[in-house]
Amino acid sequence: MIQIKPSDDHSGKLLTNMPAWLGDNDDYQPVNDNENFLSKTILSVITKLTALRENSTAHTDVFFTASFKIFLTILLILFISLSHQLLFLSIVLSGFLIYLCSLTGCTILRILKPAAFAALFSLLIILPAALFERSSFFLLPFKVFLTTGAVTALALSTPFYSITKALGGLHIPGLFIMILDLTVKYIVLLGHTAQELLTALHLRSVGKNHQKYQSLGNILGMTFIKSQEYALATHDAMLCRCFTGEYHISQQHHMEIRYIVYVMIIIILSSIYFFTEGYL
């Protein structure tokens, strides 16, 4: 380890060149300024980053793989969208509620909030339809609630890296998955950069800022420049590691007993759908 010793001559020179006011304390009285916008922006960035960090450490089911969860969610959305029967939707709701019972209160809230909001929004949109069709107009909000709930439950119970890896098993092109992976990574990295810059702005905002939006614009600009630098550096790093435009995701499939359970769940769900719709 190199020992960095202060050079006494230079240190002394610096001291003599130091502005005199740096040795005094300012008698500064700040003026009031509204900084709600800045505080809300910082809070919003932190909330999004926390959600992403929580997702990366999300509890993953040992029994149900990400591939199965994605497949089941897509199948559920398909059946829910095609179904005209309240009975099928009620059975799905029952299953959904049983699943929710196995989660913590906080997770349940995070699943139900967007689902309820989306259902309420769709209800408002189709409210005029109630004048003409009273018997089945509520099916749409019901379907919206179930599909949004299913997707939120998938997102909260499966880390992004597991989802993108599982997409490989569903024969999604590797390049698409790579872009998705890089996007998630840079959202986190640039989010941290933006958060730090906003914090720096907050700490130095000790008076009245007449150009609040310009300062925020500068931060956006800096974040954009950083994203460009990251992109160029990643491109160079990939080229150095022999990247030729192909992105392979290793998929190893071994027949396991749990796959029988997966098949049974899918058969039961499909049977319920076809039975309630009158195809069986």
């Binding site: 300012d26 500064y28 009285q29 700040p30 003026v31 009031n32 300024d33 509204n34 900084e35 941290h192 950069t193 730090e196 810059l197 720096a200 702005l201 907050h202 700490l203 130095r204 905002s205 000790v206 008076g207 300062s215 500068n218 931060i219 600009g221 800096m222 950083k226």
Partner: peptide, 26 residues
């Protein structure tokens, strides 16, 4: 309290570890 916060932040100067995340002006 806006004024207390400003006075407090004025009295403490914080130089970040990474200057890239501290400099935001053109």
């Amino acid at each position: 309290d806006n004024l207390t916060a400003k006075k407090f932040h004025k009295r403490i100067g914080y130089v970040f570890q990474n200057p890239d995340t501290q400099l935001f002006n053109p």
